[in-house]
């Protein structure tokens, strides 16, 4: 018996399409890489600074700008809590309205519109607009984070509500319950546990975001960090980053505990 040839079947069966795609990918990569303009002189100079920065993690300086760091962190935290609470409170009606199985069509369209608007733009872009409206300071930050929270929570809430077991809602409706009673007894128990988990998760995200929107003047630790980088005070920058990481890790641990207790 003569040996039969065998080779693994390719991912894309059509050879022309396969080669065409590979060629296009290669051409794009080439074009993309060649579009990077690098000033190697500047990079070489910067590497020393990079090394200095990495080294500064070994001896972060919490002390000399502790006043600024402390103020920034407290501001970030207060922005985070306020924005998360306000955002969730506003997200609940929007989420209810964006659930196809509960809301009438015009309300549905309106709420979906709000969600899409909130999710499309980066927090920092929204922050620019709010700073222009409210002036510099944490209020613009709170508005930004709350706005982003609405889109995030409302979208997931709406999806959860659309996925609930209709039989349970029907059973509650069959008892003669009013619409709010249906919400409380038929819908809420089904979506609550995940909502609490998501809220804690969003709290976490809001804190991380609060650390950057300060760059455009919306309050929080970001402004302090930006200043530290501008002045090449790497020891202080390292200290701030370590504080951020510690808080994020702490809140992540907390949210995992909360989510586990709920299940």
């Amino acid at each position: 018996m003569s040996a039969r040839a065998w080779s693994p079947p390719p991912l894309i069966a059509n050879p022309w399409l396969r080669r065409g795609l590979a060629l296009a990918a290669a051409a794009y990569l080439l074009a993309a890489v060649s579009s990077i303009e690098v000033n190697w002189e500047r990079v070489r100079e910067g590497l020393d600074r990079g090394a200095a920065f990495v080294a500064s993690f070994a001896r972060p300086d919490f002390v000399s700008r502790w006043g600024d760091i402390h103020e920034g962190i407290v501001e970030s935290l207060s922005m985070t809590f306020a924005a998360t609470a306000i955002g969730i409170a506003l997200a609940l009606p929007v989420g209810l309205g964006a659930a196809r199985n509960l809301a009438p069509a015009p309300v549905y369209a309106l709420c979906r519109g709000v969600i899409a608007l909130s999710r499309t733009f980066q927090e920092i872009i929204v922050a620019i607009l709010f700073v222009a409206m409210f002036g510099f300071g944490p209020l613009a930050g709170v508005a930004t984070l709350a706005f982003a929270t609405i889109g995030f929570i409302a979208k997931l809430l709406a999806e959860d509500i659309e996925d609930i077991d209709p039989a349970q809602v029907e059973a509650i409706r069959a008892t003669g319950a009013t619409w709010p009673q249906i919400l409380v007894y038929g819908v809420a128990p089904q979506v609550m546990p995940r909502m609490v988990g998501l809220s804690v998760y969003r709290l976490d995200i809001n804190f991380r975001e609060s650390a950057v929107i300060g760059i455009v003047g919306a309050g929080g630790i970001g402004a302090t960090l930006n200043t530290a980088f501008d002045r090449y005070e790497f020891d202080t920058a390292a200290a701030i980053i370590l504080v951020i990481i510690a808080i994020v890790m702490g809140s992540e641990y907390l949210s995992s505990v909360v989510r586990r207790r709920l299940q």
Binding site: G46, R49, G50, R208, E209, V212, A237, I244, M249
Partner: peptide, 16 residues
């Protein structure tokens, strides 16, 4: 934990 904007701030000081 670190937002890409913070990474970018850092890298701009290092790499230009």
């Amino acid at each position: 934990s670190i937002n890409s904007l913070i990474w970018a701030m850092l890298l701009v000081t290092v790499l230009g």
